[in-house]
């Protein structure tokens, strides 16, 4: 057993877990943050993607104890109160989800993707960047549309902020 301390969605948390506990299970079972899902055993489906220290990682491929000391953001920590994050809003507006199971991982991957491409995104790049997230419902059509829309909204938003700052 080992002690695990994390900052999750801005809150300090800790627990004692078996060393073999995966980060995803710590989030789900110890913290009750069940928005992060497990869809495969081979680290391919991406339903478990969260941000660890600001970067998208697969929480099913990291031990909880390995993450100890890190800052973690899950799907539950993305919205600002009742205001959806622009990527969440874009998924809703563009019907980028059906059963909702892959959705948290898709959104966390998309947020990370948009952040890494401040220059903007095109369809080919979005499809390539979604390689590690599998959806069985949507055929990806509306997910791609949602990511492109969110990327545009966020670019406008950040320009707006930049202007305001200037």
């Amino acid at each position: 057993m080992s002690d695990v301390s994390l900052v999750v969605n801005g809150r300090k948390v800790s627990g004692t877990v078996e060393d073999r506990t995966l980060l995803v299970h710590f989030l789900r079972e110890n913290l009750g943050l069940t928005g992060t899902h497990v869809g495969c055993d081979t680290s391919q489906c991406g339903a478990c993607v969260v941000h660890v220290d600001g970067k998208a990682v697969k929480s099913c491929t990291m031990l909880a104890v390995q993450a100890s000391g890190s800052t973690v953001t899950t799907i539950e920590g993305l919205a600002n109160g009742t205001d959806l994050h622009p990527v969440q809003a874009a998924f809703k507006e563009n019907h980028g989800l059906q059963c909702g199971f892959c959705t948290p991982g898709m959104i966390m991957t998309s947020v990370d993707m948009i952040a890494r491409h401040p220059e903007g995104l095109d369809e080919a790049t979005v499809r390539h960047e979604l390689e590690g997230n599998i959806c069985r419902c949507t055929g990806y059509h509306n997910i791609v549309k949602a990511v492109l829309a969110a990327s545009k909204t966020m670019a406008k938003g950040s320009k707006g902020r930049a202007k305001a700052a200037a």
């Binding site: 998208a56 991957t109 990370d112 960047e129």
Partner: peptide, 9 residues
């Protein structure tokens, strides 16, 4: 290599 999440780790 792999996907973005794999490349981060």
């Amino acid at each position: 290599i792999g996907d973005p999440a794999v490349r981060h780790k």
